[in-house]
Design a protein around this nucleic acid. Structure first.
Length: 280
DNA sequence: AGACACCCCTGAGAGC
DNA sequence: TGCTCTCAGGGGTGTC
C-alpha cells in the first residue's frame, strides 16, 4: 500500500513527536511479528534507548536509536504507524512501542505483509537484504535519465514493471507508476530498451513532480492508508488513471483501460500514452 | 541476469 | 443471509 509519499508523510509527522523520546517498552500483539522481533533480537537494544532520527528508505521507515541500533519498519500493503497519546487503540495492531511520557507508537497492519527488522548501524554487512539492494531515491540527485537509460538498456521488461523494481529506484509502487507514466505520456507496456531519451527525461521529471505533489497532499488513501493521526491522505482525488478504468480521460476523453502486468493492475489512457515503435 | 509464477495474509465487494 | 470468488498501495523465494 504505502509508497514513497505515504512513507514520507509518516516520517514528517513522526519526527517532531518521536525524536528525543525514549522507548520504554516493546510489545508484540501477534505471533508473526513476535517472531520477527525475537529473530532480530530487538527487545534488549531497543528498551531504554532514545529515538534520535526518523527517516525513510524507499517505502520503509527507519528509526535510528541511541546505542547504534536501528529499526527498519516495512509497511507492506496495509501497514501504518499511528502515534497515540495514550488510552486504548484500534484493531489490527501487531506490535507497539511504549514511549516516555505515556504515549505509544502503534504498528497497525491488517494483512500482516509488513515487517520489522533491527540492525547495528556500524555493521553494514548485517543490514537487512532489503536495504542492501535498494536503488537510488527518486527525489535524490542520483536519480536521473542517464542512470535509468543505462539500467533499462537491453531489457525487454515493461517500463511499468521496471519502475516498480525497488532495486532500480526505491519507493515507486503500483499507484504512482501508473500515474507517472500517464503524466509522462508513455505506454506502460513499452519495453525499456525501446524508450528514447526524451521519454526517459519526461519519466524522471514527472516522477519527481508527482511524488512531491502527493507528499504535499498527505499521500493517497484508497482504503487502508492513514496518516499518523488516523486522517486520510487526499491525493486520491488527484489520481488521473489509477482506479478509473472505463471512465473518460480528463485530458483527451478516451476510455481509461485496466490491464494486468506482473500480476498487478495497470491503468492507462490509450489516447495520451502511445507506444513507441519496437521489434519483438 | 532476468523473467515469471506463486506465496504470505485479511477483508471488502460482487454475484448467485 | 450466506456462500464463493476476485481483488487489493509489497516483497521474497524458487525455477527455468
Amino acid at each position: 500500500m504505502p509508497e514513497l509519499p505515504e512513507a514520507q508523510v509518516i516520517v514528517n509527522e513522526l519526527t517532531p513527536v518521536l525524536v528525543g523520546r525514549r522507548i520504554i517498552r516493546v510489545q508484540a500483539c501477534d505471533e508473526k511479528f513476535a517472531r520477527q522481533l525475537e529473530k532480530f533480537k530487538i527487545f534488549r537494544p531497543v528498551r531504554g534507548s532514545e529515538i534520535q532520527k526518523v527517516k525513510r528508505r524507499g517505502k520503509a521507515i527507519v528509526l535510528d536509536l541511541s546505542g547504534g541500533f536501528s529499526l527498519l519498519i516495512q509497511l507492506g500493503m496495509t501497514g501504518g504507524l499511528l502515534f497515540f497519546p495514550g488510552g486504548g487503540y484500534p484493531s489490527h495492531v501487531r506490535y507497539w512501542l511504549g514511549l516516555s511520557g505515556g504515549s505509544k507508537l502503534l504498528f497497525r497492519d491488517t494483512r500482516k505483509f509488513g515487517k520489522i527488522a533491527g540492525y547495528r548501524r556500524g555493521e553494514p554487512e548485517n543490514r537487512p537484504a532489503f536495504l542492501k539492494t535498494l536503488g537510488p531515491d527518486p527525489l535524490s540527485s542520483d536519480f536521473h535519465s542517464r542512470y535509468l537509460r543505462e539500467r533499462g538498456k537491453n531489457r525487454i521488461l515493461s517500463i511499468k514493471e521496471f519502475l516498480m523494481n525497488q532495486t532500480v529506484v526505491a519507493g515507486i509502487g503500483n499507484i504512482y507508476s501508473s500515474e507517472i507514466l500517464f503524466a509522462a505520456g508513455v505506454d506502460p507496456r513499452q519495453p525499456t530498451r525501446s524508450l528514447d531519451s526524451p521519454a526517459w527525461e519526461r519519466i524522471v521529471r514527472q516522477t519527481r513532480m508527482i511524488l512531491r505533489r502527493a507528499i504535499d497532499a498527505g499521500g493517497t488513501t484508497i482504503r487502508d492508508y492513514r496518516r499518523t493521526d488516523d486522517q486520510q491522505g487526499t491525493f486520491s482525488s488527484a489520481l488521473m488513471v489509477y482506479g478509473r478504468e472505463q471512465q473518460s480521460c480528463v485530458r483527451c476523453r478516451s476510455v481509461i483501460r485496466k490491464i494486468r502486468q506482473g500480476n498487478r493492475s495497470t491503468f492507462f489512457c490509450p489516447g495520451c500514452q502511445r507506444l513507441l515503435p519496437f521489434r519483438d
